[in-house]
Design a protein around this nucleic acid. Structure first.
Length: 196
DNA sequence: CAGCAGATTGACT
DNA sequence: GTCAATCTGCTGC
């Protein structure tokens, strides 16, 4: 599997990067390989975005890595319980990030089911930013690790017309920035799934 | 099906 | 003390 070059993450247009991460692979290998295909992302545009942890230049031990080199993981604890996985983008000093919100599970289903304490495979196994990290075994300890351990180019081609653009989830506190079209998901899955 | 409480830690409108 | 880039399970229509 090919990992993405640093130049992929180093660009300043976090919205473009968020869209281009759709169709890429997100995997961990803690004993067994687990993961799948990214189908939902959100862009967080640094100091000018009220929904971002780095809004107005806020800098704390928690979000410090957002200001560092691109191509590393920003993982933080949300609501005291869930680890949320972000890709840090833009050149050093610009705290942009892309939140990975959902993947289609493809590898290590049994391991992911047991991590999630589930019996049967369905679309909820890795859908939702907290659910996905639980399934892959990602936690805050992985903050700061290079993304080439996690994100791979699977060679899937995602067409513009297959991307659904909408507003971000759970950021009502962000005022007018809550209306920004910064959430991207796949309109159609390019794998068959049985929901019946 | 909708709606809400609870879990639990870091940052601070 | 309050609220947060969430999920689950329970309640009540």
């Amino acid at each position: 599997m090919k990992s993405l070059p640093l130049s992929f993450y180093e660009r300043e247009d976090v919205v473009t990067i968020a869209q281009e991460l759709l169709g890429k692979g997100l995997f961990t290998n803690f004993g067994t390989q687990t993961g799948g295909i990214i189908i939902e992302t959100e862009a967080y545009a640094g100091i000018e975005d009220r929904a971002s942890h780095a809004y107005s230049g806020r800098r704390t031990p928690r979000n410090e890595v957002m200001y560092g080199s691109p191509g590393i993981a920003y993982v933080y604890l949300c609501y005291g319980i869930h680890a949320l996985f972000n890709a840090v983008t833009a050149p050093e000093g610009i705290p942009h990030a892309v939140l990975i919100r959902a993947i289609i599970p493809t590898h290590g289903i049994k391991t992911m089911l047991s991590r999630r304490k589930k019996q049967v495979l369905d679309q909820t196994l890795t859908s939702g930013p907290g659910a996905l990290t639980a399934a892959l075994g990602i936690s805050c300890e992985h903050k700061g690790l290079a993304l080439d351990h996690f994100i791979y180019d699977l060679g899937h081609e995602v067409k513009k017309q297959d991307i659904l653009i909408s507003t971000r989830i759970g950021i009502d506190y962000a005022g007018s920035d809550a209306l920004l079209p910064y959430r991207f998901s796949m309109k159609r899955l390019f794998m068959t799934s049985r929901n019946d």
